[in-house]
Simulated assay, not measured.
Amino acid sequence: MAQVTGKAVIRVDGQELRTLPGATLDTGGVTRKPITGGGKVHGYQEEDKAPELDCQIARTKDLDVKWLGSLVNATVMFEEDIGEKHLLREAFTMETPVINSQDGSVALKMSAVSCDKV
């Protein structure tokens, strides 16, 4: 029986983050939009889409939230428990990290120049 992804390990410049369940990775590439008119689909247009990583990290005393917010030109590895690995090159933080005191997490959203399967 095939294993289905259930966990992910995320490393930024070699440092493993205490990632909570539910991390998502959009590997980016090309999106397509249908072009319609006169009740018909005439074709489609392509648009480039940057990769995006969205995750929650356990908030501990040793987690430097300012460091997370200042990340640029980082190397990020997204490793699934099924053995697949994706490398985000020249990654950067998109939004300021948000600390949630109710569940002890920090929200992190990143993008990158590219995302490659390794």
Rank of each mutant, 00 (worst) to 15 (best):
M1A: 11
Q3S: 14
V4A: 12
T5N: 09
T5V: 15
A8N: 09
I10A: 06
G14R: 04
Q15R: 12
Q15K: 12
Q15H: 06
L17Q: 03
L17D: 00
L17C: 02
L20N: 10
P21H: 09
T24V: 08
D26C: 00
G28K: 08
G28Q: 05
V30H: 11
V30Q: 13
V30E: 10
V30S: 12
T31M: 06
P34D: 02
I35A: 06
G38I: 03
K40G: 00
E46V: 14
E46Y: 11
L53M: 14
C55F: 13
R59C: 04
T60F: 01
L63K: 04
V65R: 04
K66I: 10
K66Q: 08
T75A: 15
V76M: 05
F78T: 08
E79G: 05
E80D: 02
E80F: 09
I82D: 14
G83A: 11
K85S: 15
H86A: 05
R89M: 10
A91V: 01
F92D: 00
T96M: 09
P97A: 03
V98G: 00
I99D: 07
S101N: 10
S101L: 13
D103R: 03
G104V: 02
V106E: 01
L108A: 02
K109E: 06
M110H: 02
S111E: 03
S114E: 12
D116C: 06
D116V: 15
D116W: 13
K117Q: 14
K117G: 00
